[in-house]
Measured scan of single mutants.
Amino acid sequence: NKSRCTICSKLAEIRHEVSVNNVTHKLCSNHCFNKYRLAN
């Protein structure tokens, strides 16, 4: 079950899903999750 990561755009296994204003951001790693948190 692979999806495209919101941060790095890599097609990968999604580890984190963050839902903001009915938009789901898919994040493939802790690294991308941290980058997402810093950016938002």
Rank of each mutant, 00 (worst) to 15 (best):
L38C: 12
S19V: 12
C5Y: 07
V20D: 08
H25A: 15
V20C: 03
R4E: 12
I7L: 09
A12G: 06
N22W: 01
C28M: 00
C8G: 00
C32W: 00
F33I: 06
R4P: 10
H25Y: 09
L11S: 07
N34Q: 13
E13G: 04
C32R: 01
V23R: 11
H16P: 02
E17P: 01
S19F: 10
Y36F: 11
S19H: 08
R15C: 08
H31T: 15
L11K: 09
S19Y: 05
Y36V: 15
E13Q: 04
H16Y: 03
K26Q: 10
N34W: 08
N40G: 07
S9E: 07
S3Q: 11
H16M: 04
C5R: 00
N21L: 07
S29D: 04
F33L: 15
N34A: 15
H16R: 09
H31Q: 11
K35V: 10
S29I: 01
S3V: 10
N21K: 10
K35Q: 14
C28R: 00
S29C: 04
L27D: 03
E17G: 03
T6C: 06
A12T: 13
N34C: 03
R4V: 10
N30L: 11
K2G: 03
H25T: 12
H16A: 04
E17D: 10
K35E: 15
R37K: 03
V23G: 12
C28E: 01
H31I: 14
N34T: 12
S19L: 06
F33H: 07
C28Q: 01
I14D: 10
R37G: 12
N22S: 12
L27E: 03
C28I: 00
F33G: 04
R15G: 07
I7H: 14
H31R: 14
T6E: 08
I7A: 10
K10P: 01
V23T: 13
R15N: 07
N40R: 13
K10C: 02
V18N: 06
T6W: 08
I14W: 03
T24P: 08
V18I: 03
H16G: 02
R37L: 08
A39L: 12
K10E: 09
V23D: 15
N22A: 09
K2A: 02
N40M: 01
N34S: 14
L38W: 08
E13Y: 03
V20T: 09
S19W: 03
E17C: 10
C5P: 00
L11V: 15
H25L: 05
V18Q: 05
L27P: 02
E13H: 02
E17R: 07
N30M: 13
R15D: 05
A12R: 10
S29A: 05
N21A: 14
N21G: 15
C5T: 00
R15M: 12
K35P: 01
E17W: 03
I7Y: 11
E13L: 05
L11D: 14
I14L: 05
H25V: 13
V18Y: 03
N30A: 13
R15I: 04
C28A: 00
E17Y: 03
T6A: 15
N22E: 13
K2H: 03
V18D: 06
N1K: 11
V18T: 06
L38N: 08
C5S: 01
I7D: 04
V18K: 04
A12Q: 10
K2S: 03
V23P: 02
E17M: 07
K35C: 05
H16T: 05
A39V: 11
V20F: 14
N34E: 15
H31L: 12
N21R: 11
V18A: 07
K35F: 05
T6L: 11
N22R: 08
L38T: 12
R15E: 14
A12H: 04
T24C: 06
T24F: 11
H16Q: 06
L11P: 08
H16W: 02
K10Y: 02
S29V: 02
S9R: 12
N30S: 12
V20L: 09
T24Y: 05
K26M: 15
H25K: 11
Y36A: 15
I7R: 06
K2W: 07
H31A: 14
C5K: 00
S3C: 02
N21H: 08
V20M: 11
E13C: 05
R15Q: 14
K26C: 08
K10D: 07
R4Y: 08
C32P: 01
L11M: 12
R4K: 14
R37F: 04
N1H: 02
H31P: 13
I7E: 13
L27W: 03
R15K: 14
F33W: 14
F33P: 02
A39I: 09
L27V: 09
T6G: 09
V18S: 07
S3R: 05
C8R: 00
T6M: 09
L27T: 03
F33M: 14
N21E: 12
R4L: 07
N34R: 14
E13P: 07
N22H: 09
N22M: 06
K10S: 06
T6K: 03
V23Q: 14
V20K: 09
S3L: 10
I14R: 03
F33K: 06
C8K: 00
S3Y: 03
C28K: 01
K26A: 14
